[in-house]
């Protein structure tokens, strides 16, 4: 009796379990995926902003996909400061030229990459932004210089529709 004579049953058992598992997964997935962003959330993909009233040294904050976006018209000093930083001094090395195609305009998500707070303007040790939550310092290019945040503030997809209007998203 100790011989393994139950091969057919083993096969049926394994096959039933496998089909059951696939079926369960097929039912569970919609339950999980329903929590992902829905169609109406995804539809709010882009925002157009009029920046004609912005003077050098000023920042406006606009809401895009529920998140603040900083649009800063930088002064020449700030641009020089951002562009003179050596790559090896950066935690997350990115050239300012890549972050601000048009050097006068810095457009980035105003979200600290640590835990998502909104950093404060014109604050911190690097004349850029400072996050009040856990003390991350960003420079005039929005790059992380000191503190717990791992990355530079994110640059969203954006374009100048005309000289005075930026389309984000």
């Amino acid at each position: 009796m100790s011989e393994k004579k139950t091969k057919r049953r083993d096969f049926l058992f394994t096959a039933t379990t496998a089909v059951g598992a696939v079926g369960a997964a097929a039912v569970v997935w919609p339950m999980i995926d329903q929590m992902n962003p829905d169609a109406s959330v995804k539809a709010l993909a882009s925002t157009e902003v009029d920046v004609s009233s912005l003077n050098p040294g000023n920042t406006i904050t606009v809401l895009w996909r529920g998140k603040p976006v900083f649009i800063r018209r930088r002064t020449q000093d700030e641009i020089d400061e951002a562009r003179s930083v050596k790559m090896e001094d950066l935690i997350h090395p990115e050239k300012d030229e890549d972050r601000a195609k048009n050097p006068e305009w810095l457009v980035m998500l105003g979200v600290c990459t640590h835990l998502g707070c909104v950093p404060l303007n014109d604050k911190g040790d690097y004349n850029g932004w400072f996050c009040p939550c856990h003390g991350s310092h960003y420079d005039t290019s929005g790059r992380i210089r000191k503190g717990p945040a791992p990355w530079n503030m994110e640059i969203p997809k954006y374009e100048f529709v005309n000289a005075n209007t930026i389309k984000i998203g």
Binding site: M35, V41, G116
Partner: peptide, 25 residues
């Protein structure tokens, strides 16, 4: 915001998990 962002610390899938938790951006 801060507590849900804790999950973004998870390598690779962290951001996806946070979006899933939020049901948005």
């Amino acid at each position: 915001t801060v507590i849900t962002n804790l999950f973004s610390a998870i390598p690779l899938v962290g951001e996806g998990i946070v979006t899933w938790l939020w049901g948005g951006y």
